[in-house]
Design a protein around this nucleic acid. Sequence first.
DNA 1: AATGAGGACAACCGCGCGAGA
DNA 2: ATCTCGCGCGGTTGTCCTCAT
Length: 222
Amino acid sequence: MEGKLQYKKGLWTEEEDRILLDFVRVHGKGQWNRIPRMTGLKRCGKSCRLRWMNYLSPNVKRGDFSEEEDDLIIRLHKLLGNRWSLIAGRVPGRTDNQVKNHWNTHLCKKLGIKRQNGKAMVGSSKAQTAELENSPRLVVETNATLLHDGGCNSSSNDVKAMATQDSTLNAYEASNEQAQSTSQHCVESLWFANSDQLHLINSPGLMEFLDGYPFDLIWQGL
DNA sequence: AATGAGGACAACCGCGCGAGA
DNA sequence: ATCTCGCGCGGTTGTCCTCAT
C-alpha cells in the first residue's frame, strides 16, 4: 500500500513537525504520500496531511473556543448536523477535528445532548442524509427560515429566486411577512426563527446560501 | 503521595469520491 | 469500463492531564 516502510503512529515529535514543515515550505501542500519517501519521515501521507491540517497550518487557531465560536457552532450544528467540515469552514481558524472534538466534549454537555453508542443524537448519519436527499421536496419550514433575510445580500436573493420556483414560495412569503412584522434583524431571523423545527437537510439551495452568506453579519448580530 | 476515574484533545481508521491512467 | 491514487470526511480510539479520594 504505502510501500514497504514501517510507519510510526502516535503523537508527533518536534523533529517530525519540523521535517513536515520544511517539506510544505518547499513543495507546498498536497502530494502527501511523497513525504515519507522524500524526507525519510516515518509517517504515512495521510498522517502527514492530518498533522498539517489540524496542527501545523498557520491558519489553525489554537487555544480555547470563545463564547461567540461556541454559539456559532451550535447554530451551524443545528442547521447542518455532524457535517464538521462544513461547520469548520464557517468558523475562522478552526478545523473540522477541533470543532468535532469541542462539540463532543463541551457543547454536547452544555446543551444536554445525550450520545448513543458514542454518537450524538442528531440526525446526521449518511443513511439519514441519503434519505433526505431522496426526499421529493425540501423541508419547507427550514427553507422558509433561511429565507427570512429580507434582502440582506445578493446571495440570499439568489436563494429566494430559487424558492420562487417551487412550492416553498408561499411558505417563504408568509414567513417573510412574519419576519418583517417582527422587525427582526435578518441574521436573527436566519438563526432564531423556527429554530426548534430545523431539520437536517442537504439541499443545494442551503449549500449555496451558506457559501454565499456573509457570515461576518452573524458575528455582528451576536 | 499514590492511584483510579473521567475529561480533553490528538491521531488513527475505514470509507467514499473524483481525477487520471 | 476499470483500476489506482490522492484526498477528504466523520467516527472512533489512544494518550495525556487533572482532580477527587
